[in-house]
Each structure stands twice: as structure tokens, then as C-alpha cells.
Design a protein around this nucleic acid. Sequence first.
RNA 1: GCCGAUGUGGCGGAAUUGGUAGACGCGUCGGUCUCAAAAACCGAUAGUGAAAGCUGUGCCGGUUCGAUUCCGGCCAUCGGCACCA
Length: 863
Amino acid sequence: MTPQHQDSTRKKSVLQLDNYQPQPIEKKWLTVWQENNIYQTNTETNDKPKYYALSMFPYPSGKLHMGHVRNYTLTDVIARFKRMQGFHVLHPMGWDSFGLPAENAAIQNNIQPAAWTDSNIAHMKKQLAQLGLSVDWDREVTTCKPDYYQWTQWIFIALYKKGLAYKKEAPVNWCKNCETVLANEQVIDGKCWRDDSLVVKKNLSQWFFKITEYAQELLDGLDHLHGWPDRVLLMQKNWINRSIGAELSFPVDGHNARIEVFTTRPDTVFGVTYMVLAPEHPLVKQLVPAENQVEVEQYVQSASLKTEMDRLAADKQKSGVPLGVFAVNPFTHQKIPIWIADYVLVDYGTGAVMAVPAHDERDFVFAKTYDLPVQTVIAPDTENNPDSFRVENQAYTDAGILCHSGQFTGMTSTDAKQAIIAFAVAEGFGHKKIQYRLKDWLISRQRYWGTPIPVVYCEKCGTVPVSESGLPVVLPTDVDFSLKGQSPVSSSKTFLNTACPTCKSPAVRETDTMDTFVDSAWYYLRYIDAQNTQAAFTPEQVARWMPVDQYVGGIEHAILHLLYSRFIMYALSDSLSTEKTKLPKEPFKNLLTQGMVLKDGHKMSKSKGNIVDPTAIFNEFGADTARFFILSDSPPKADFDWKESAVEGCYKFLCKVWRCIGDQLAVLDDPLQSQLATAAFTPEISYSSLTGNTRLLYQTTHQTIAGITTDIAAEYQFNTVISKLRQFITHLSKFNGAAEAEKDPQCQVVLAYAVSSAIKLIAPVTPFIAEALWEKAGGKTSVHLAQWPVADPEALQQDTVNIVVQINGKVRDQFSVESGAEKAALASKAQSCQKIQPYLAGMVVVRTIVVPEKLVNFVVKPE
RNA sequence: GCCGAUGUGGCGGAAUUGGUAGACGCGUCGGUCUCAAAAACCGAUAGUGAAAGCUGUGCCGGUUCGAUUCCGGCCAUCGGCACCA
């Protein structure tokens, strides 16, 4: 017999045990829940506080993976918990269904992207249902359907009208493999975020969203997002990257032109020994003298051919060519050469810098390479004679004392920055400036499967947005998907020609589509009003449900999706809020970024062949086991390791739950049996008269309720929730109801409450088995609509506590004492402990520290 | 290079206004039941030691009666940004 063979027989026998049968249970309740619409979020207003629980919606790639299972289970448990706690819960689901994979599949298999997407959605929807999500499917949204993207287009037009959408020619990121442009956020290490292929710069006319308009607001908003992980806040902060400095203007010698530069170090302006323009800077062509033209053009040409990777690989080395023209430093009136170098980026600041080799590492390297002068103007604070300080082998980049700086000599860097800016303002060649690294969001894509940009080009009127009555601009189907370098939409015979919305004369449509991140930047608003055919949403409903109370998804969207969504919400809030209806600016109040699902310590991947198929797990062990397991071992933020043997352990635990609840139900008398499975079962129990094991069961029940409620509310510590559930079930299964009933008359009712609570407590995590047990216990309505139990504060205290006795902080003995004992009593009892006597011999107690309910510590020293 | 997070048994992890380190689970070992196996149940499981005890939360130091927790310095791993002027 091979080892594999042994393994499979073993597994089979595990599954045959007992009478917990997940498959029929899960099948049955899926149907019942659906027929009774128990997860439908009605729209009528009620007194309950609202709670919006949202998962990052999936791309319909074909089938569910374990990352989905983890994401959606987390959100679902939160939604179910909040529902039982009495919140009016919105828990929707949908499909982020535009995007390149559908288009690639279309080319490969000669099938319409829409058909490919639809069949994927159908399959994945079935899988999601199996997982037992308490989702209101009436609110499902699919971004590739006209009834959704019509409103994406509407938002585009709204932004356009506010001047937040514009078209311009600019050097943009071009992915050779995807044959389309990419947003700045989609270029990772000089490579395409989707397929890792190299990205090059191209000068193209493209549509942008003016996210930079909101740079400061988006930055400030981060301070109020207390429910977001710090690292996401930090990543967004770094991405926006604000720097404070000055914009200074340098006249060009012999030309009627000025070079504007941005600097964070105006205090070093007396050390400027040359200037640098980015190769793409417009002044380059304008200023270059005839004798330098060939050399300069060659350099510009070679810089443009470099990929982002090449630029990065060059690392510390710098190259450039002199333009052959000079600028004048307005502070020193010195003539300084103007150079062109690709270490200066055209799309940051003004695309030009004043070079201070003495106090900037990059300028220093460049100056050394081309033998340009280095003028020291800042000396360290510690220098006794600042004027004699000289930068030699490396730039001095810290702040310090100014030297060789005219009237500013002797000032500190901080003071000099102010003074120099003030001087520049007075003389009219500069001002204070705040600069952001964040760039405008490039949203056009030269691809087919996306939302058409709703714009037409009219010979008379120019660029005109499609009127609202002209929406949706429907994506044509008569296209050649294999068209390269421009949008396949342009191959459509029916799409291109139209009439201008303004003057009705012939016009042509924009053929680019939108970045799919535009679709996903507002979908959480559409859920709120998913069936609205008159508008994207009604502001009143948005004001009622937004912001999302809990958003759950992967860390990979820390910048992309989460920054774009914030921008769109800020923009919509600004344009749609009225006196009466105020829309929030921040879309997501709390954010939970879950870790990855690994398999035996490795990333799951097709190439490794270690992918665990959720459906196989559902079929073998049931969705409850999958849900229970994926919450059990690691906290949500950490990576989770999927281990086969551990899954089995979870399955066995559910068998134990089934048996335990069944056994205890059998012990209960009839009237109690029929009462315990009602929504708000809270029997009259006289706690003070409880004794023995019955008293202990009551305490344990309430401690478990309190512990689990706290763990979920605080940080979604589901791993400790699971641990507490296990301990409680173990306790409950050891409780001998028949024997205890003879000792304590209240045993039956305490047991009934424990059983009722146990079913409720497992309900969010394992909804199927909970529902089945609830029915078994006589429940007539769903346990998922029952009330979450509330802990009795009196029962949370232990009757007796363990007191540790320490000598100089080391544990030497311990004793048990009734809870609530006085400090003095604890100290004297501790003093008499046998085991500590040897440590007290020949010693004198200099201090006694008593922590009530915890410990007594004697500080001793030799007599 | 800059910024940040993390570091606890064989493994995942638990414990924080500083108070018994290792909850709960996985794995392993032993036992009960059985003709036998599976399941179930019970017990053991940081290292070292016969035991008392000693050592132990990445490393070094500090504060404290007492430090996984606070402070300083270092190391390692992971993540983000990266010629941002």
C-alpha cells in the first residue's frame, strides 16, 4: 500500500464519523435563506443604526481562490455579528468585470469578452453562494453592464464639467505588452503592475483626472482615518509626498526667457554653480544654439529611448550635456552654465533644478563627473569658523550656518530659508511653494474591454462631453480585438461617427476606454441604490449609508484603489452635497487589510501546483469548516497558512459541536427546549443562589460571551474568538446535565441558556451548522436574525482567584483565595506560605507589594 | 539610500494602563476502549536537570520590587518609496 493510498482511506473514515453531515445541511439552508430573503436589506428607514460592511469586489477571473474565501468570510462574519447586535446591515457584492484578461481570452479563444465574463460570473456566483455569505444579492453590481457603466460615464462628465477631467499631451507610461498607457500608480519598479513587462515613456495625448487638485485635502484627510492601518496611511502619505520650499526664477543670459525651479533648500541659493533642465523641458529646443544642436538632440533622443528600468539602473551615475547657454543667479549675479541631464525629471516640480553640488548628493556627483565648480555655502553648526569650512569628498546635505552668502551669511538654515524667500518676493523673482509628488491620474486606455470615455470631437465645437440623454455610450461589439497600438474600439464601423451633442454637425467619438480603477472607485455608492434607473444614486440614500463602516480587502490596493476612491468621493461630495444632504468625503471609515493565504508556507500558484480549490473543500468538509479554519489560526492582518491536517481538525471540532449540543438538548425538559431557540431568550436566573458546576457553567457562558464580543469589536481577533469557542464547547460537552440537575434546581435553565448562547456565538462564523442546530433546538425563525447574547457583568468575576507569591519578583509559591480579598489579608496569608520561608530566613522584608486579585511580592535584603 | 513593520516552543499563534510567558490549535509521544484499526476520550509536550532548581520572548545594555510589554543601541527578516530637487 502506497502512502497516498493510506492517506485517502484515513480521510474517508474521518468523514464517516458521527451524524454531522455538512453537505445536506448546507444545501438545505442555502435554499431556505434564499426563499425567505433573510439577508435582504430593506430600504425603508428604521430606528436601527446603520452598518455598511463591504468586501473589495472580485474580478471575475473564472474561479474563486482562497484569498477570496478569506476576504469574504471576514466581511461576512462581521456583517452577521453586527446584524445580530441589532444593526441595520448593508452587505453587498458585485463584480469588477472590465479589464484586460477578458480581452486576452477573447483574442485567444475567439469569443466575445462579454460572454467570457458572464460565464465566469455565473460560476463564481455559485461558489460564493456555497460559502454562505449573508449578501443581499438584489444589490449586485456588474461594472461591465451598461446599467452600471452609464453612471461611470456620468461621473466622468461631472468631473469634466468641474474641470477635473482634461486631455493633454504628456510623456506617459506605455506598457509594450498590454499595448496601452498606464497610470503612475500602476508602474512598479519601472514595470507594468499586471505583467511585469518594461514600461517606456511616450508622448501621447491622454485623458487625466485632476487628482492633484485634491492633494492637500487627501493628505489632511489621512489624519482623521483612525480606523485605517498605519502602514496604509503612511504609504498614501509618502505617495502624495508633500514638500515645502520655494519657486525661484533665473533669467537666461542674452535671452528673454527665465528658468523656473523648485527647491526645498532656498538657503543654499548662493551655492548654485549651474542649472539643469530635464531633456524634455520645452526651453531646451528654444534655447539651444546652432553649434550645440546636434549634441543636444542626440542626448534628448537617447534619454527618451531609455526605459524606466534603464534610468533606475543607472543609479548613482549621471550623464548630461551642456546646452551652451548661461543663466544668471539673481542673488549673486553670477553667470552659470545650463546643462541638460536625465536625472532631472520633467514631470516633477518645474522640470528644472538649480544645482548646488556642495549641498546635494546628486548635484555633487554630476559636478564631479563634468568638473563643475563646487561652492560651499552651508557649514555644520559645530564648525568654529564657518567661513573656512569646505565641502571636499561628499556633499554636506544637513542644515547648518550660512557662509559665503552675502547679507545672509551667519544665519541658520531655518532662518535663511524665510529671509531668502522674503527677499525673492520683494525683488520679484520667487515665492514660497508647496510641491506634491502625486501626479494627475491618467485614465485613458487604448483597450477594448472598459467603459467608453463619453466624449466626442466636433470640428466646430471641439471636445464635447456626451449629453446625459446620450448615455450610456455603449461599447460596440463589431470590433477587431487584435488591433494593436490603438483602441480596438476604433475598428468598429458603427461606433465612431456620431453627431455633436451641441451643434448636431458630424463628429467622431473618443475610442479610448477608461482605466478599470475608475469603475471600482465608486461602486460602493452604486450598491446603495443599485436598482435606480434614473440616477447613479440618490444623495439622500448615500448620506444615509455612507461612509462604509468596515471595508475588508488586500493590502495591494493600499495606494491604487483606495486613493482613487477617496479622490472620487471627495470630488462627488464637493459637487453633490447640499445644505440639507451632506455627503461624507471619506468613503471608508474602517479598513481591514487581510494577509495572504499560503499553502505550507508558500504562496499558492499555478506554477507550484499548490493551489487549494475552495469548491473541493466545500464538497469534502463543508463551507462551515472552511470558514472556521480560515479564521482560526492567524489574526486577519497576518498571512495565513493553509494546512490540510488542520482543516481536518476544524471539521472534527464541528462534529463535536454537533454532538455536544445534541446531547445537551436531550437532557433538557420540553418547555425549555422549545423556548431556548427564540430570538431573545434570557431566562430569569438567580445568580447568587447558583452552586457548584452549574454556577461554573453560568460563569463560563458569560465570560465567553463577553470575551468573544470584545475580541470581535476590538480588532477582529477571530483567532482568539475561535479559541474561546473551542474552550466553551469543551466545557459544555463535559457538563453532566443529568447529574447536576439533582444538585442544583436551576441547572436546567442555566444549561438551556448556555446551549442557546453557544449556537448564537458560533452563528457568525459557521452559519449553516448554527442554523441546523437552532432548528434542532426548536427554532422557528433564523438564528441569524436572533439577538446576540449580552454578558451578565456579575458573572464575569471568578469566585476564587489564584494569588502568586513572589520574592524579589520571582514566583516562589501561590495560593487560592476568595475573590475580593483585602490587601492586608493577602499579605499576611502570603507571609505564611511554606515555600517562601527559606527565602525569608536571614532576610529583612523592605517592601511588600500587593496587587489585588494577582500577586504579593516581598522585596527582601540580607539582615 | 530613506521610511515603516515584525522578531515568543517542532509549527500557527496567545498574553500589553509593566504583574504566574507559551492560552487555543497543529504535530509528536503515552494511555483508555477494541480481536484489530479508525473515531472518541484522558494525559504529557520550551530547554536543562534525578530532583530542588536554573535558563528562556532576536542580540547588548538601561529603568523597575517585577520587563515579551517602557527607554537606548545593534542584528535579522519582510514591506513601501526611490535621481521628487
